[in-house]
């Protein structure tokens, strides 16, 4: 069945040679040890986070009146709620670990050097996105931890002279943490950052395909 559909599409678009050459038969080093897997792990965690995140977004309402109650509902009252939110939480934590190990491996192997400078730079951008994800995601349950961590975190740019106060206000959508902060962080967490990370991931992977994995030492 799958083969039939594939051939039907191929008859019209002629994608088979491309898929064979660029994906399936693409040569890869035979002697890659497990330290080369941290990037793949991170991507897999990204997929887990997307699926569990979209699932939770079905129930979650980003308003100070409802955020806490909807998270409580989706965690404790819905079938598998604890698991879905638990996977999202732990995958996010583990993702920081795998990103860190991935970067460490690339650094130790000097794989960021010419000609792969651009891939390192997109990688650092992805790292910043991952941290932004965890910071914005933290506020969404609207519990004590969420409120105070966000209050302190968004106050940090305020220490910069002249523009600091303005940055804090733009981050919060006002001078205080409130309804506007929550909807801002929600949009960043589920719309803005995911589209940015998707675009950068495509670039990151396309460059690996183009240049190949750095030769193992």
């Amino acid at each position: 069945m799958f083969r039939k559909v594939y051939y039907w599409i191929d008859e019209r678009l002629n994608i088979r040679p491309y898929i064979r050459k660029e994906i399936l038969d693409k040569p890869v080093h035979g002697r890659l040890n497990f330290t080369y897997c941290f990037g793949g792990m991170t991507f897999f965690l990204f997929l887990l986070l997307t699926i569990t995140g979209v699932s939770m977004a079905i129930y979650y309402v980003p308003s100070p009146d409802h955020a806490y109650d909807t998270v409580d509902y989706l965690t404790y009252q819905i079938f598998m709620g604890k698991v879905i939110r638990g996977v999202h939480h732990w995958a996010a934590n583990l993702m920081v670990v795998t990103v860190f190990l991935h970067m460490l491996r690339v650094y130790i192997h000097g794989a960021y050097k010419k000609p792969r400078e651009l891939n390192w730079i997109t990688g650092v951008m992805l790292f910043v996105l991952v941290l932004s994800f965890s910071f914005t995601g933290y506020l969404l349950p609207w519990d004590q931890k969420a409120y105070w961590a966000t209050k302190v975190g968004t106050q940090m740019p305020g220490s910069v002279p002249l523009i600091g106060d303005y940055v804090v206000r733009v981050l919060r959508g006002g001078s205080k943490i409130g309804a506007l902060t929550l909807s801002r962080f929600y949009v960043l967490h589920v719309i803005f950052l995911p589209s940015m990370i998707a675009a950068l991931l495509i670039g990151h992977f396309a460059m690996i395909r183009r240049q190949g994995i750095a030769e193992p030492l």
Binding site: P64, Y68, V71, D72, T75, Y76, K82, R85, G86, H88, H89, W90, P141, W142, D143, Q144, K145, A146, Y147, W148
Partner: peptide
């Protein structure tokens, strides 16, 4: 399991 703390 991940916990939900007290409301803000």
């Amino acid at each position: 399991p991940v916990k939900l703390g007290d409301p803000a």
